[in-house]
Every structure is written in structure tokens, then in C-alpha cells.
Design a protein around this nucleic acid. Structure first.
Lengths: 351, 351
DNA sequence: TTGTACGCGTTATCAA
DNA sequence: TTGATAACGCGTACAA
């Protein structure tokens, strides 16, 4: 059974067909449709009429080949299931769509080879710009070869990295977390917290190093300390890794006053595990996450977190993309500031 | 400051450059790269060497224009932030990528005009096929004009609808939920449930009608009944709508034994609201969701749900897409069966 | 204002 | 096995 009607010889309509129908030249059709030059009202109406009647849809491939602009953006993330990435993508795509851009979205699963393959696929398709998230640009230490490859591609198409990468002039959009972490640790301190654990992350991912260093430094500033046995920081960034890290924490015997998780997914997993072992959050233990993902507000109690403003995040990305595409000047590094969002997981009813 | 190096005249390499470097004709270069015809080993090596040296990347636009195949798929969802859609997309995109396809992903936000605009953008870019999810094909009653427009596009590019739509021959992949709902209601009955409420959904969305009818019918079969005041079925499909519906339910005075939610997001929101009002799940009230989204397993207690096998879901989509692209025969309607997944929200420790 | 002709970078059809 | 040469569908100088 043939469902798709392409079997029938439905040759696509071209501007030549339109030019014949409207009794004008192909160039005039092009002019009317693109508005690139003035056309007499009569011919103009004839063309538009012919377009209507024939259901003409310009072939974007031919347009792009001639104009060398695809009005298409490439977007590379490790995993679109991760709400952090899907939130950003959602808002960027809407902005793009409203401005005549379509977006190619690929999942790298964080693997170097996949990233390379995807970059090639996107570049081959001549996307106007590429947003690169996760994977190699979050690696610790960062791979020189990986960055070199990015620079190679950046010579062919404007790239935008959403992490801080030293030693490259590729534009970067990164988060500046010192203010939020300071506020977070101050808040914990005000809730009577003296000791804290750090959960989740991976030693080969820079965000762990960055956030851990900030937590330790800011915690110290408020007289809060941690212990080596409470540093369960190489379990990953997933919900499941949060469960595992929490399970390990429970086997320490001694518990800290607070558990600071590397992100909200880990926090959600940890919360689940801690509760299933009979602990009350926040009565027995304070809990914090990071990023302001949807998980932080759907679990009970809600998780205190350092949240990004995703619509703003996306707007920044889109602006930088447009600058890249139009070869306008832009700062090499743009910073984003997450803000502390206090929820039930750190709010003790009776202080 | 100019970051992107496109300012310098880095003209892209073409097969003409390669042909000159390798001392062969452009046609031979094309043959080597596509493997479309036999080429002598000597010239073959010369071409590949030139490709290596120059860092040549074929212009996919030109390839597509000449071959009329883009190796690109269009994907239209209401909201990629919704884990139901991001799960499906994730797996489909990986399959596509592994098979040389890239995917354009657009968010329609469920709006008819956006869907039309996106279909046009995708078709104009000559994608090889389009996956259409949500929005008009989930509408109740279904809009004849909407379907007519889909058929118009289906004449230009193979479409795949992920809902059941009567009166069209466009291929459809839909879920067959009678088995799962029957198992669900039986399970509730075995847990001692005699009365139940239905939460979430929208009267103008078909999934509500379908699932509600099944729940009522299957519930009846096990002697379970509901009441009009417990039908809070026009609040939406979001987490927030789950909170609202639950809040309304609590004002009924009398509570049912179980709360059946239209999906897992509603269930997660309802759970949050019910707990914050002091109700114990599952002790005071059983709770169920639908779809097997990540929310159902991250909250506490886990939510009993009818879960899809997302990797399989995606595989089906991809297979149907390939059939459409290659104009191979395919069943007009393919069915998918979610399976009952029992979690803490309906499991009473002491029966 | 309008039309002609060429270029964009491939694939594909012919001869040779 | 190869190499001209013609599509593919559009933008755009250039000329009229």
C-alpha cells in the first residue's frame, strides 16, 4: 500500500513555472518574492497570483546554494532528554523560528567521535552557525586536540561554545556562579548548617571542579566545613547517580548538616534515596541542587537551587549567533548569572 | 573584535579544486566520493589524497539540489521540554544520525499557525520526511481543514503522524491503550480501590476522551465507579495543571480511593499538591499517571503508570520514515502498546 | 522597470 | 574507465 503520494509525478513548481504563468521573466519572480527590487504593480500581482494558484514553495536548497546562506542553525547537545538542554533549546528554537531560521538538533551523548561526526554533518549542510554544548568543552582537563578541531570548524562556520574554554578565541557563553554559590552557602549557614557534603559530578568534567571550589571557598567563609568521606563527587550527573551517591553517603555513619548536589538531577535522585532511608528533608538534612531544572520544583520538598533564567539564556545565545552570522563584533566571553532560588529542601519550619 | 575567521577569504573547497589537485575530471571526483561507479585505483587514491590535503567537505546543498534528497528529516513537536517528546526525539535522532540523516526540530507550541509555518519551512528546505506530533492531530474534534492541509503537504513530502487520525491515508503511529488501562484498573481494584477520580487533560484533546473512556469502561468492569465532581478533566497536561486539579479535588469534601491522572506530569503535580495538604500516598489515596515519563520515577513515591518503550517507539518511527522516503509499502496505522509499570503510588504496604 | 545570462557545487547522462 | 556537458532551482550583475 502506497500512502505517500510522491509516487505520482508531482514535479515541484519552480520560478520558471511561475514566470510562465505570470508572463514575466524568472528574475522578476525572484524579485517579487525576495523584494530585492522594485517591480511594477501589475506584474507583481500577476506573480503573486501565479504563486497562489500553483502552491509554489521556493526551493531553499537552490536559494542557499545561490546566496550561500541556509538560514539554518546547528545545535549540538549531549542529551536533549536532559531538561537543562531541552529548556535552552526550546527557547532558542522559538527565537530562531520567529526569525526565519530552522535548527538542526543533534545528540552527541558526550562522545568525542560523535561530536566530530556531527560537526562535519552540520558544516557539510552549510548551517549558518553552530551552538556547541557539553562534551569536550566541559572536559577537565580540556583536550587541546578537541579545541583545535573546534577552531578548524570555526574557520568554516561561526561557532558558539556554552562553556568557558581557555586559550581560544571562539565566542563563549558561560555561567558565572560565584555570586549564586555565595548566596547559597550564606543561606545554608543561616539555616544553622555547619557541615556539608558535595554529591555528584565527575572528576573529568570541569563544572565539578568549578562548583566544588566555589562551595568549599564560600562555605569556609561562613565557617562551614566538609570532610573527605563526604565528597562523593565522581558518580555522574544523572538522577540515578544521585541515588547512588546518597546511598554511599548514608553508609558514612556520620552525616553532614547539608548535602550540596552538583545539579538538580543529582539532587532529585539523592532526595529520593535519602527519604527512602527514612531521612526527613529538610528536618534531618538540608539539600541543594543547581541549574534550576524542572526537577527542582516537581519533587517534594522543592529543591533549593541556583537557577538560570532560561529565556534570557536563550536570548543571549541567539544574539551571539546573529552576531556571528553577520560577522559583527562580539565579546569573546559573555557571562550569565544564575540566581539563588530557595525552596523547601533548605527551609526549616521551626528555626 | 572579530572572533569568527570567516572574515578572511577562506573560500570553500569544491570538487573542481579537488579535480585540479588530483589531475582528474570533476565527474571522477564525484564518482570516487559517492562510489557510484568504478574508478581506477590510481585516480581513486589521487582523489582521496587531494580530499585529505585540502580538507574538502562536500556541499550538501549542491548534492541535494542535484540528487533531490537532503538526508534531512523534519520533526515537529509542541514542546521539546516535555519529556515525552524529548525522549522520543532523542532516540529517533540517534538512529537518524547513525544512518546519515540530520534532523530539523521545531516547537509548534500546539498552535495551528505555528504548525503551518513550520511545515512550510521544512518542506521548503526539502526535508526527506516529516514527523508530526501533537497539536492539530490530537485535537478533538479533529479539524478537517487541519487534516486537509496535512494531506497537501503529504503530497510534497512523506508525513508520519504520531496519533490516530480518522479519514486520512497519511501513515500513522498510534498507541493502543486498552490493554494497559485494563491492567491498570485491575491493579487498582486489587489494591482495594472502589472509587476513582480522573485528573487532567483538556476536552478539546482526543487523548482525554480516549483514556477517560477506557478508564471508565475498565473501571466499571471491576466494579469501580467515579463521580461527576471527581472529573477534573479540563485543566491541562502540565505539572501546574496537576496541582490545580488536585487542589480542586480536595475541595470536594469526599475523596475517591484513587486518582487517575491523564499523564505523568499531571500526576507529579497532583502528588505534590496532595502531599502538601497532608495526604499520604498511597495510604490515603492511590495515584496513577500515564506515559512512563521520567517524572513518574523521580518523585516519591514513584508513580504507577502505563509506560511506553521509548527506544522501540523511536525505532518504529524511524522505520516508517525510511519506508516513506523509499516509497515502500507500509501499514496505514501502526500500533504501540504501553505496559503497566507499578510503583509506590499504588502499592499499599499492609493490605 | 525588465529580461538575459551566468554562477552556485553537485549529480547524472552521454559519448568516447 | 573517463571526461565533457547538461540539469538541479535560484540570485544577481549586466544590459536593455
Amino acid at each position: 500500500m502506497r500512502n505517500h503520494a510522491a509516487g505520482s509525478p508531482h514535479k515541484a513548481v519552480t520560478i520558471y513555472d511561475i514566470s510562465r504563468l505570470a508572463g514575466v521573466s524568472p528574475a522578476t519572480v525572484s524579485r517579487v518574492l525576495s523584494g530585492s527590487a522594485r517591480v511594477s504593480e501589475a506584474k507583481r500581482k500577476a506573480v503573486l497570483q501565479a504563486v497562489q494558484d500553483s502552491g509554489f514553495l521556493p526551493n531553499a536548497l537552490a536559494q542557499s546554494l545561490a546566496s550561500s546562506r541556509t538560514h539554518t542553525i546547528g545545535f549540538l547537545v549531549p542529551d536533549i532528554k536532559n531538561p537543562y538542554f531541552s529548556s535552552i533549546y526550546y527557547h532558542v528554537e522559538i527565537l530562531a523560528s520567529q526569525n526565519g531560521y530552522a535548527v538542526l538538533l543533534a545528540n552527541s551523548r558526550g562522545a568525542f567521535e560523535n561530536e566530530s561526526r556531527i560537526l562535519q554533518a552540520l558544516t557539510g549542510r552549510r548551517v549558518d552557525a553552530i551552538v556547541f554544548m557539553g562534551g569536550r568543552i566541559d572536559a577537565f582537563p580540556c583536550s587541546a586536540a578537541g579545541i583545535a578541531e573546534l577552531e578548524k570548524f570555526n574557520r568554516m562556520v561561526p561557532l558558539l561554545l556554552t562553556s568557558r574554554v581557555e586559550g581560544t578565541s571562539i565566542p563563549q557563553l558561560c555561567s558565572r556562579e560565584d555570586g549564586a554559590v555565595l548566596a547559597l552557602m550564606r543561606h545554608l549557614s543561616e539555616q544553622g548548617c555547619r557541615t556539608f557534603a558535595i554529591l555528584g559530578g565527575a572528576e573529568d568534567v570541569s563544572v565539578l571542579h568549578r562548583r566544588r571550589a566555589l562551595m568549599l571557598a564560600c562555605g569556609c567563609r561562613f565557617g562551614m566545613v566538609t570532610q573527605p568521606k563526604w565528597a562523593l563527587t565522581d558518580t555522574g550527573f544523572s538522577i540515578e547517580s544521585g541515588r547512588q551517591a546518597a546511598a554511599q553517603l548514608l553508609q558514612c555513619g556520620e552525616l553532614p548538616d547539608a548535602v550540596c548536589c552538583i545539579n538538580d538531577m543529582v539532587a532529585a535522585g539523592a532526595l529520593q534515596q535519602l527519604r527512602s532511608d527514612g531521612l526527613q528533608i529538610p528536618q534531618d538534612l538540608l539539600l541543594t541542587g543547581f541549574d534550576g531544572e524542572v526537577f527542582s520544583e516537581v519533587v517534594d520538598p522543592g529543591i533549593t537551587t541556583a537557577a538560570f533564567d532560561y529565556p534570557d539564556f536563550a536570548q543571549r545565545i541567539f544574539d551571539l549567533l546573529m552576531r556571528g552570522i553577520h560577522q559583527e563584533p562580539c565579546a569573546p566571553v559573555t557571562e550569565l548569572y544564575p540566581h539563588l532560588t530557595i525552596r523547601g529542601s533548605t527551609r526549616r519550619e521551626a528555626p
